[in-house]
Design a protein around this nucleic acid. Sequence first.
DNA 1: ATGATTTTGAAATTCATTTTCAAAATATCA
DNA 2: TGATATTTTGAAAATGAATTTCAAAATCAT
Lengths: 159, 159
Amino acid sequence: MEKTSGLPFQQLLKERGLKSTRQRDEIARVFMESADHLSVDELCQRVRQKNPRIGYATVYRTLKLLAQSGWASARQFGQRTARFEHRTEGEHHDHLICLICGKIVEFASGRIEELQSRIAQKKGFRIFDHKLELYGHCADCLAKKEMTGKEVREKATNE
Amino acid sequence: MEKTSGLPFQQLLKERGLKSTRQRDEIARVFMESADHLSVDELCQRVRQKNPRIGYATVYRTLKLLAQSGWASARQFGQRTARFEHRTEGEHHDHLICLICGKIVEFASGRIEELQSRIAQKKGFRIFDHKLELYGHCADCLAKKEMTGKEVREKATNE
DNA sequence: ATGATTTTGAAATTCATTTTCAAAATATCA
DNA sequence: TGATATTTTGAAAATGAATTTCAAAATCAT
Ligand SMILES: [Zn+2]
Ligand SMILES: [Zn+2]
Ligand SMILES: [Zn+2]
Ligand SMILES: [Zn+2]
């Protein structure tokens, strides 16, 4: 029973009547230590480096717990497989996604958020979350297109 | 071979070396005549009122053609099933989605689009498409919550 | 410990979407 | 026109991400 740093996730589990287990703690820890935009596969692989017996289902379940309790949030990025990132109270960022190479670049714009609130208010909505995704071609891929002079047809594989 | 109005979709098929068929024309026509945010199921049902023998696969395939050629665009709205809407050159709108009743409200903001372009430019991206989705509770559902004084737990079913 | 409760992981299931493939429709051209 | 090549269709099978099932294992409260 190694203590996995003072992750408030365990606190939270207790509050919800859930148990803090070796698996959950490990998954939460690895998730919090990883860079954003991980797929479940990727997270599962990393987790298994420490404990190879952890099942996919548990990773999915824990990720859901993390999401429900505000530590993680799932993003779709135009693909079928979800990617997860950290969520920090009050902070928010959105994404530029390259349709060719799959690169994901983050940005934040208080101006846009402000305009969003105003629109929501006008329409009578109370907003809890939002997603702003800009799809296009990144600088690198634009340069490559320039080189070949051809339209690049391959789809982003995110591999 | 009834002519289904001057839908440029047929023109486009020809340009791409694809055939204009009874099924494709019918699916495209029904799609273009329908309100936005249809699911594939819903479109398929409507199409089958005219021709009950049209298969799901063909609806999916035609919708993909429509999307690739710029007539339709697919949206996800936080659910697993896609919804399709018309796309008009140069026009764009985004969405407010009620997490309780599933209501979808459209909006457009030139100010936001402008800020988006500026961000993309700064990051070296060339943007072709974007999605801005605001998730929250609509006025009606907020009113109901007020009435009961309780948090409403049901998820949007979009039924 | 004892027994109740929760969690786990492998396998099965779900469900939207895609693919397969043989039959049907359509185009090409002699 | 008829013969042949190509494309499209639709039913059924396959895919693939995510969820559920369930018996075994872990954990909790006496
Ligand atoms: Zn790129
Ligand atoms: Zn991010
Ligand atoms: Zn509502
Ligand atoms: Zn719309």
